[in-house]
Structures are given as structure tokens and as C-alpha cells.
């Protein structure tokens, strides 16, 4: 695309405007994304407390991290929340998409209703569900006042199930997105496949199970990655709904990082914890990226 002229300007100045336009990107990529990440990883091996300092202590921070009950609870919560979120949002999202794909009336209305929670922030989501799940006024109270006086449903105040209370809100907020992605996937399938299956006399549910779902593998994997990326970052929802309580029973890693960096004045711990989060993401993303892009070459 670049013209060959007799006196060619120096290489650096060729396409100069494009390079100027890309300066923010280059700075961002190098300084923040690459530099920032490396900086945090490096400082996770130091004993930085109130201020970052380069006094290396090896793996000390990590050793302490993995014996801190608060972190262990956070990791366990994330594992439960993550597994449930993946399974349920995929299943519910797919079922909703399949229902909407039946050439129904008011499809747009239903889609709008299922997706609107996704437009709301996690803070709003968390606060609404905190109110609905409030044992003194919410669902538990209403059911009790109907006559079932022994009815107990207060997930946000029961440390053994509090993470499921958060899951309820997260599913309400996030399944619409999964549904939308799935619906796009379903719509992308060749109409002739459906016709062929009908001529073959294959029942609808079998067509979905044995033909359509296997065909949607790329969409499913992309959706999975998107959900997974969201799971690791979960933070605002917990802050709004329970503030990590009761006690520390609904702590999550992102919150742990924030607390240690900005409140406990123990930067090293925060850096180590955030590096662990990065590691988790790498474990999820790398195999996917390999499957998605690696094989094409």
C-alpha cells in the first residue's frame, strides 16, 4: 500500500500518522498490560507492606497466602460459584435459547425480559437480591406468613450456603447473555439440517441433543470462556450482597486482593493473591486459545 517514491523518507516516519494514532495503544499494551502485570508479579515476591519495596522474600507471600483461612475460603467459594455458574448458566441459557427458537410469538419481548438484568450493574443486582432474600421481609417471611411457619430460606445469613445466595443473583443477571449467545449460535445453523432431520423423522429433542449441540461446539466454547472470565472477576456482587459475610464465609479472591492492597496495607499479599488469579485465568485461557487459534495454523 505504501508508494515507492524516489527519495524515501526514513522508515520510522513512514506511515507516521498511523503510528501517532497507535501511540495510546502501544503505551497501554506495553506500560499497563505488559509492564503492570510484570511489575505486580515481581513485587509479589517482596515483603511490601504499606508501600511497594524491592526486598525479595522468595515464595513467602504465597506460603502465607495458602495458609490464610480467608484466602482458602475465598478459593473454595470461587470454585463452587464457578462450577455452578458454568453448569447452570449454560444449561439455563441454552434451554431459554431453545425455547425462543421455536418460532414463537413475542420472541423479542421475551428476549428483552431475559436480557435486561444484564444491563444492570452487579451492585444493583446484589442489592435487590439482598432485599428479596432478607429473612425478615423477603421470601422467607412471605412464605412463613402464608402458614408454613417452619420455612427457612435465608442463604445470605447462613455461612454454609451463602455462596449459593450469591449464585442466585449472578444467574439472574448473567443467563440472559448466555441465552443471547446461544440463540445466535442456533440461528447460525443451516436450516437444511433441521429439514433433513425432519425428513429422517428424528424427534426435536434428539435433533438438539445429537445433531445441533455437537454442531454448536465453537459457540459453546466461546461462551464458556466468557463465563469463566466473568467468574474470576466476581467482586462487586459479593460486596453489595453480603460484604463478604457472614464473617468471612462469602469472601472471593478479587475481594481478598482489594482488602489487602487498600485496607490491610499488606501489598505483598495482595500482589501474590492477584498473581494467583492471573495463573487461574492462564490455566483456563491457554488451552482454549490453543484449540481455537493454534490448530488453524
Amino acid at each position: 500500500m505504501t508508494e515507492q517514491t524516489a527519495r524515501r523518507p526514513s522508515r520510522l516516519f513512514r506511515n507516521l500518522n498511523a503510528k501517532i494514532a497507535s501511540i495510546p495503544m502501544i503505551l497501554n499494551a506495553l506500560v499497563i498490560f505488559l509492564g503492570g502485570t510484570i511489575w505486580t508479579i515481581v513485587y509479589s515476591f517482596t515483603d511490601s507492606r504499606l508501600l511497594p519495596r524491592l526486598n525479595f522474600v522468595g515464595l513467602d507471600q504465597y506460603r502465607r497466602l495458602w495458609v490464610t483461612p480467608r484466602w482458602l475460603v475465598a478459593v473454595e467459594n470461587l470454585a463452587i460459584y464457578g462450577a455452578c455458574m458454568l453448569v447452570f448458566s449454560l444449561i439455563i441459557g441454552f434451554l431459554l435459547a431453545a425455547l425462543l427458537d421455536q418460532k414463537i410469538r413475542f420472541e423479542d419481548t421475551f428476549r428483552t425480559i431475559f436480557l435486561y438484568p444484564f444491563a444492570l450493574s452487579f451492585i444493583v443486582t446484589g442489592l435487590v437480591w439482598q432485599w428479596i432474600l432478607n429473612p425478615n421481609f423477603g421470601v422467607q417471611h412471605v412464605v412463613r406468613s402464608l402458614g408454613w411457619t417452619d420455612f427457612a430460606f435465608d442463604p445470605l445469613y447462613d455461612s454454609s450456603i451463602v455462596i449459593y445466595g450469591i449464585l442466585i443473583a449472578a444467574l439472574w443477571q448473567g443467563t440472559g447473555l448466555v441465552m443471547c449467545l446461544m440463540l445466535a449460535g442456533l440461528r447460525g445453523i443451516d436450516e437444511d439440517i433441521w429439514k433433513a432431520a425432519r425428513v429422517d423423522g428424528i424427534p426435536t429433542w434428539k435433533t438438539y441433543l445429537f445433531i445441533i449441540i455437537p454442531m454448536m461446539r465453537p459457540v459453546l466454547i466461546t461462551t464458556l470462556v466468557i463465563i469463566a472470565a466473568g467468574i474470576v472477576k466476581v467482586y462487586d456482587l459479593v460486596v453489595a450482597q453480603t460484604s463478604g459475610g457472614p464473617g468471612i464465609s462469602s469472601e472471593v479472591p478479587a475481594k481478598y486482593v482489594y482488602e489487602y492492597m487498600f485496607h490491610a496495607q499488606n501489598l505483598g499479599q495482595g500482589f501474590a493473591a492477584s498473581t494467583m488469579m492471573l495463573l487461574t485465568v492462564i490455566i483456563v485461557i491457554v488451552p482454549w486459545a490453543y484449540l481455537e487459534f493454534g490448530r488453524r495454523k
Partner: peptide, 17 residues
Amino acid sequence: EPKDRGIGMVFQSYALY
């Protein structure tokens, strides 16, 4: 239903599973 009509059909896009 199509399956009960005693027909077989071949599609432009093949529509193989």
C-alpha cells in the same frame, strides 16, 4: 409428517450431520 410420506430428500447444502 415428512417422515411418513414415503419420501427422501437431498439438499443443496448437503445438510449432513
